[in-house]
Amino acid sequence: MIRNRSEKALLSQGGWITLTLFILLIVFAVALLLGRYPKAGLMSPALLQEDPLAQKLLLNLRLPRVLTALLLGMALSGAGMVFQMIFANPLVEPGFLGVSQGAAFGASVSIVFVTTSIWAIQGFAASFAILGLGFSYFIARKVRFGGWVIRLILAGISVSALFTAGIGILKYIADPVSQLPEITFWMLGGLWNITWREYLTILPIVAPSLIIIYLMRWRLNLLCLNDETSFSLGIAPGRERIVFLLLATLATASVISVSGIVGWVGLIVPHIARRLYRSDTRYALTGSMLLGGMFTLICDSIARTVLMGEIPLGILTSAIGATIFMALLMTRTVKVEK
């Protein structure tokens, strides 16, 4: 009897995931119809059939942007979950380990010294993101006090600060007319200049990375255990960690190469996902990706509709994310017990 009950508890998580997917589809549809044409608010689906301008607008402007917002959220929160599991710490996200700042620095280098082509920016962002991660890891190994996680976080903070200083220098020497706005856009984060071209440039990197992470997601559980324990369970912990970290870093660097830095998603969404779908990454990772997609989709819809001009997406996700985080911290004792 107990056995049946436990199996049911494990399987019922799948139902919650399906429900989340369903809600995400609704949010997706609403986001597509939401905007300032023909007037501020929701476009009626009937209009789409008769108005060619509405069709064009939806297919060429809104659809790539909404799809990118979805991909951005899924990548950031999926990567956030990977980082939190691998470092066995719920307070870690790619931004904490020099990945985001590294990517931003790489993009700035590309803008100032090389070219503003989307491919070059993506390549530079990804290389410097991995460099940032590697550098944090290297420094953490050399720190001579504290536990592994605190050393990593300290190393990550200092590496991020170094990159931020670098970005500051680049901003200073950048051409204020052509280059500086590009860098500033990067630091604030936003999706206003997304077209199909940007979406299709990042898709070949982000999609495979996320799919592999998704398929291997149960094994993430094993990597939050002590090294000797996961080793005894037939894992090569070092090797598997590197695979997951590289995939997560690639996906993150790729999406932020077109969006700029969008903070807090990778930290806050995995937290909420663990509360809703429990800790097993079999469900928590899937849930995290779906919720992340939903979160950025909602934030981006607010960003482009609330004011006449755009609110930078990164500012919105940080404001909302930090608020939710405070609320979560203060309700720590409230357990989600189903």
């Binding site: 494990l10 939050c224 894992i235 429990r278 800790s279 097993d280 357990k335």
Partner: peptide, 16 residues
């Protein structure tokens, strides 16, 4: 680090 249920935790033993 994370709030696994006992069953989820013991299931990790099936990894090999």
């Amino acid at each position: 680090s994370f709030e696994y249920s006992l069953l989820e935790y013991v299931l990790l033993g099936r990894a090999p």
